[in-house]
Design a protein around this nucleic acid. Structure first.
Length: 410
DNA sequence: TCTGGGGTCCTAGGACCC
DNA sequence: TCTGGGGTCCTAGGACCC
């Protein structure tokens, strides 16, 4: 039998902002951007939540609900620093730690009794250690599975600890709403509601066969979850096993929708560079490149291309992305968002080709140098502009429409 | 009042192969 | 001149999480 902790930081982004500026305490604070901007709420203080504001809500909606709220852009690098601090504390208690996101983690505390005492005592010590090192509040759920611990930490808020004694999991889950189960969102909740399933108890009473027929593989996992088991998918993986990313992406939503061909292409190049820098930091090569296009009105398409050989060179991905863009962008149509996504990673380079081998090594040398500078002086200040021009000049001219911006009177 | 950015996993159809 | 069955890869889309 395992002992699993789920640690969840309380109102994480907002709490870090309060450390920076204590005068924010007790006020409605929203991190995500200004109340007049495009975007959504990343985090809301408990005071702001009283107005019905929650994360993922459009900023403008939040502004309507609470015009006097304090809207902040946020400091992502700082949140990451605090997240690292928390991780360090966790690792001093057990080596088996999974950071599930910037503000939550799973820990396998099985067999740690001799060191830290029984589960509840260990959790109290951990909780105190986190507070001591970060001055931040957190909540901890304890049980024999990731799933139950996660739900428990949610119920433990704020700044609390909740232990679900082994053997009582199903009973404890029974009265809770099905949407408490991670993975059950709006759609599944509605589907379940139509067949009269509202609480986890209802779900637990269903026949596995029925769930399998109705919801496929996911239905079967759901049946297990209703009993408090880490059935299927990510929850089933061992804590501390492998946290290599399976995809890397960057996207950008324009302040105003645009059909400016040059601006769109320049944005794609920039996104590719950011993606590839991170890919190289991992020492990976990617085989599949995906473009995301969101048009005015929010209609969204994705178009992917698998390369012959995996690559870690900007040039290859930029070329593939610009190609996808040229063949999928209806000239003149306004674009809201562009995204670049790479996946299908391998950690070793393909055999250098006779044709491109020399050019590749030159690129690699150049990228190594710019990566170093980016590490030192930060992203965004530096691009292989000159080199890019040389390589893409012809293509840009050949592919550029004669009149990239359509004007009504022309 | 329109709807960010970074991810994961699953499904489903078609290509292609044996 | 009608049409199998299994396996894998590729692509597009969607649900969901923080």
């Amino acid at each position: 039998m395992k002992t699993i902790f789920h640690i969840d930081m309380d109102a994480f982004f907002v709490s870090v902002e309060e450390l920076l500026d204590p005068s924010l305490k007790g006020k409605p604070v929203i991190v995500g951007g200004k109340g007049t901007e495009r975007g959504v709420v990343s985090a809301a203080s408990y005071e702001a939540r009283k107005y019905g504001i929650h994360s993922a809500m459009p900023l403008r909606t939040a502004h309507q609900l609470c015009p006097h709220a304090i809207f902040l852009d946020g400091h992502m690098h700082l949140y990451k620093e605090y997240s690292d601090k928390v991780e360090t504390v966790l690792r001093s208690f057990s080596p088996l730690v999974d950071m599930a996101s910037i503000d939550e983690a799973y820990m396998d505390m099985t067999g740690c009794e001799r060191l830290w005492g029984p589960p509840l005592q260990a959790a109290h010590r951990l909780h105190e250690a986190i507070t001591a090192k970060t001055n931040l509040n957190s909540s901890i759920g304890i049980s024999t599975s990731r799933l139950v611990s996660k739900i428990a930490s949610d119920q433990a808020k704020r700044n609390g600890i909740l232990w679900i004694v082994p053997g009582t999991e199903a009973n404890w889950l029974a009265p809770l709403e099905v949407k408490r189960i991670p993975g059950v969102g709006k759609v599944t909740e509605k589907q379940l509601a139509t067949i009269g399933i509202k609480r986890i108890r209802d779900l637990a009473q269903l026949d596995e066969r029925f769930l399998l027929d109705r919801f496929g593989k996911w239905g079967l996992a759901l049946a297990g979850k209703a009993q408090g088991k880490d059935a299927g998918g990510w929850f089933d993986s061992e804590i501390g096993s492998n946290d290599d990313p399976k995809s890397i992406s960057h996207e950008h939503t324009f302040t105003e929708d645009t059909a400016d061909y040059k601006q769109l292409r320049a944005t794609l190049v920039r996104l590719c560079e950011k993606v590839m820098k991170r890919l190289r930091d991992h020492g990976f090569h990617a085989r599949t490149v995906q473009l995301k296009l969101r048009f005015e009105g929010f209609e969204t398409i994705t178009r992917a291309k698998s390369l012959g050989d995996p690559t870690d060179i900007d040039r290859d991905v930029i070329e593939a992305i610009l190609n996808l863009f040229d063949t999928n962008w209806p000239k003149g149509r306004k674009v809201r968002l562009l995204g670049v996504h790479v996946s299908q990673f391998t950690d070793q380079a393909p055999q250098p080709s006779l044709l491109t081998g020399e050019a590749d090594s030159k690129w690699r040398a150049a990228l190594k140098a710019t990566d170093k500078l980016k590490d030192k002086y930060g992203e965004g200040t530096l691009h292989l502009g000159g080199a890019l021009k040389g390589v893409y000049k012809d293509r840009v001219h050949e592919a550029a429409p004669k009149d990239p911006i359509k004007k009504p009177n022309q």
